[in-house]
Design a protein around this nucleic acid. Structure first.
Lengths: 233, 233
DNA sequence: TAGTGGTCTAGACCACTAT
DNA sequence: TAGTGGTCTAGACCACTAA
């Protein structure tokens, strides 16, 4: 079927994938064991294992000890979103990046945020608001709260030069993060910043990042009207 | 440092991850080679390789032959979205799933869609509009176009019972898919279906799936107001 | 050209679980 | 209990690329 280039694990993966697409192995069906496939392909079992493991990771196969390997009947498709640093994302489109630091103050965190992050009442946090621009046009408005206890070196940074976004990525490792994607209606403030009509529908990304059980930062990103996140598979 | 449980590749991965978080190995820095780590951990090089490969896949390490392995300086975070069948997604919340088939006709594809998919003018496609409900409340409105040449068995299915969404997943394998996430303003029609005010901000997911170079289907999903997609990392 | 990661092999043992 | 996948090992060769 496939030619006879060196039996790499990728070629085994591709052959298995092709058989699934051809419905030679139908959804829900049990496929031959690793040992049998290794014999058929003329390679070691470890090579077959690597190939099947890759397919299982992408959700196309379900593997269980003793029970064998099945083609997933109702596969949960997994799409991988790449979330770059904002400056990079803008520069990748060929545009010039700039930013406007709108606020950098210490303030009481809003109740909703405190509850979401499990912080006690009266907690003071650093509040940073930044507008990121592409060729001078608003691209995304960033409304961020930071836990100052976790970020001692922050005061020494000139955030009008280097965006907080980028500084965090380079300087503050995190162990865990939550994302959410939603649509929201532009408030008057946000509309003015993004140079659009109030109540325009905007893509809103919320993110919070943690070091173990301590929150580092929570951010809301309001993207310019019409912005869309793309991905494959 | 870490205890001495069997040196599995996962434990090697976790130890490396911990050193990155502790900044023992700083962003951009070169880490020891596989052979050195294998010696240090007292395991085979293949085990270290598996661990480092997993970290490279999640974007935390950059590996190049001869150049060695570095901690990524500006890591592109990868978030994995799980995209389940709509019925499953609704049932997972504990709600009862139902659907309303609104339209199932053969029609000329709109120009914008034709251009996006690279189809010739005058192409007829199957047009399916479905409303998915959770406990009787509108959850998502699905506006889908199908390539009938690729779906001969479709006519035999009762789409009032089994959603097209689910039928496709079970019966039509695809080799490639595009996703995009955006915000849109509810038109009068969509607002009526989703039982919300016109111009409400809605999360809109667009998807097209392909068999090699032939399009199978293109779909727009308008989610109920307030819906949000969550993920980790 | 030398040193690094990428991969394959053959064999082994273990963990899980259907029977 | 037996059969499957999960993993580790020791050794080997190759591909790439910085020096």
């Amino acid at each position: 079927m496939s030619a006879c280039p060196p039996r790499t694990w990728q070629s085994v993966r591709d052959e298995v994938l092709a058989r699934i697409h051809r419905r030679e192995w139908a959804p829900g069906a049990l496929i031959p064991g690793e040992a049998a496939l290794a014999r058929e392909f003329g390679c070691a079992r470890a090579t077959v294992n690597r190939a099947l493991q890759a397919l299982a990771e992408s959700g196309l196969l379900e593997r269980r000890r003793r029970a064998g390997t099945r083609v997933t009947a109702l596969p949960v498709r997994r799409a991988t979103l790449e979330i770059p640093v904002i400056r990079r994302e803008i520069e990748a489109t060929g545009a010039r990046y700039s930013l406007r630091l709108l606020e950098n103050t210490s303030a009481l965190a809003p109740t909703a945020l405190r509850e979401q992050l499990g912080l006690p009442a009266g907690t003071k946090m650093q509040h940073l608001r930044t507008l990121h621009l592409a060729d001078g046009c608003p691209h995304v408005y960033e409304d961020r709260w930071l836990n100052p206890e976790r970020l001692p070196a922050l005061t020494e940074v000139d955030l009008r030069q280097l965006s907080i976004n980028e500084w965090l990525v380079e300087n503050v490792p995190f162990t865990r993060g939550d994302f959410s994607f939603a649509a929201c209606s532009a408030s008057a403030d946000v509309a003015a910043l993004l140079d659009c009509a109030p109540a325009t529908a905007l893509l809103l990304v919320q993110r919070s990042t943690w070091q173990h059980d301590a929150v580092i930062t929570a951010v809301q990103l309001y993207y310019r009207p019409g912005y869309c996140i793309r991905t494959q598979l």
